[in-house]
C-alpha cells in the first residue's frame, strides 16, 4: 500500500464526522452537564438571564426539604418495585410462552402491545380505569363483593396505582428480551436434562435462569435507570403529584422547581442526585457483567 494512499476522502470523512460529533456532544451533553453543575450553586433563571452564585444554599434547601426527601423515597420505592416486577413477570411470561407449541406469536404480539403506545395516552386511559365512582377497577372490585378504593385519589394507593399502570405497560418489553434470550439456549441442554429426567421446574432453575442472567442484568439496569427518571405518569395521572405529595418523584420535582417556580438551581441539585444514583447503578451493572 502506497504511503499517500490514505485517501483524502477518508480524511475528509473522518475529520468531518468526528468534528460534527465533537460539536454536537460538547454542545448538547458535555457543556450542559458542567453548566448544570455550576448552576446548582446559583440562583439560576434562564427566563431573566439570572445566574447568581449562592454557594451551597440550594443543596441545603433541597436536601433538607421534606418534599424532596419524600420524592426520593417515592422514586426509589417506585423504581425497585416496578423493576422487580419487570424482571420477574417478564421472565415468567417469556418462559411460559416459550414452552408453548401453539399461539406463541399471538401471545408475544399481545403482551408487547402496550409498549408501543404513548405513555401519555395510556395514562389517560388508566386514570379513567381508576376513577373511584365510574371507573372499571372499582366496578370489578364491587363485582367480587369488595369495597371501592380511592386509587389515584388516595394518598396511600396513588403511587401503587401508577406502579400498576407502569408494570402493565412495561412487562411486554422485558418479556421479548427474555424470549430472545431463551431462543438462544441450545436444545442440547434441554435434551440432556430430559435424559436425566428433569421436570419443567428443574429445567427452569438449572438451565433457563442461569442462561438468562445477562438478560436479567440488562433488564434490571435499564429498568432502574429509566424508572428513576419517571415523569410522564405522575404528570398525567395526578394533580401536583397526588394528594399530599403521594406520587412526587425526583423528576417531577425537578420539573416543578425549574419550569413552574423558575428555580433552575434547585432543579440542578435534584438532577445531580439522580445522576449520582444512576452512576452507582451503572457501576454495579459493569461489575456484575464482569462476574458473569
Amino acid at each position: 500500500m502506497k504511503p499517500n494512499k490514505k485517501i483524502t476522502s477518508q480524511k475528509v470523512m473522518i475529520t468531518g464526522t468526528l468534528g460534527l460529533m465533537a460539536v454536537f456532544y460538547l454542545a448538547f451533553m458535555i457543556i450542559p452537564i458542567i453548566y448544570a453543575f455550576v448552576g446548582s450553586f446559583c440562583n439560576w433563571n434562564p427566563m431573566i438571564g439570572q445566574m447568581d452564585f449562592v454557594g451551597l444554599e440550594n443543596y441545603k434547601t433541597m436536601l433538607g426539604s421534606t418534599a424532596f426527601q419524600k420524592a426520593l423515597v417515592n422514586t426509589l420505592v417506585f423504581t425497585v418495585v416496578v423493576t422487580l416486577f419487570r424482571v420477574v413477570l417478564g421472565m415468567l411470561l417469556a418462559v411460559l410462552i416459550d414452552s408453548l407449541g401453539f399461539l406463541k406469536s399471538f401471545f408475544r404480539t399481545v403482551y408487547f402491545l402496550p409498549v408501543v403506545a404513548s405513555m401519555v395516552a395510556i395514562s389517560l386511559v388508566w386514570v379513567w380505569i381508576f376513577e373511584p365512582t365510574s371507573g372499571i377497577a372499582n366496578q370489578i372490585l364491587g363485582f367480587f363483593g369488595g369495597q371501592g378504593l380511592g386509587w389515584l385519589k388516595d394518598q396511600h394507593l396513588a403511587l401503587p396505582s401508577i406502579m400498576i399502570t407502569t408494570i402493565w405497560k412495561d412487562v411486554g418489553f422485558s418479556m421479548v428480551f427474555y424470549l430472545a434470550g431463551l431462543s438462544n439456549i441450545s436444545t442440547s441442554l434441554y435434551e440432556a436434562a430430559d435424559v436425566d429426567g428433569a421436570n419443567m421446574i428443574q429445567k427452569f432453575f438449572k438451565i433457563q435462569l442461569p442462561m438468562l442472567s445477562s438478560t436479567t442484568v440488562l433488564i434490571s439496569v435499564t429498568g432502574i435507570i429509566s424508572n428513576l427518571q419517571m415523569f410522564d405518569q405522575v404528570f398525567m395521572m395526578t394533580e401536583k403529584a397526588g394528594p399530599n405529595n403521594a406520587t412526587l418523584t425526583a423528576v417531577y420535582m425537578l420539573y416543578d422547581e425549574a419550569f413552574v417556580n423558575y428555580r433552575f438551581g434547585n432543579a440542578a441539585v435534584i438532577a445531580f442526585v439522580i445522576f449520582l444514583i444512576t452512576l452507582a447503578f451503572s457501576v454495579i451493572q459493569m461489575k456484575t457483567e464482569k462476574k458473569i
Partner: peptide
Amino acid sequence: IPVPVTILS
C-alpha cells in the same frame, strides 16, 4: 447520562 441532567442546560 440521564436526561434530567442535561435538560435544564
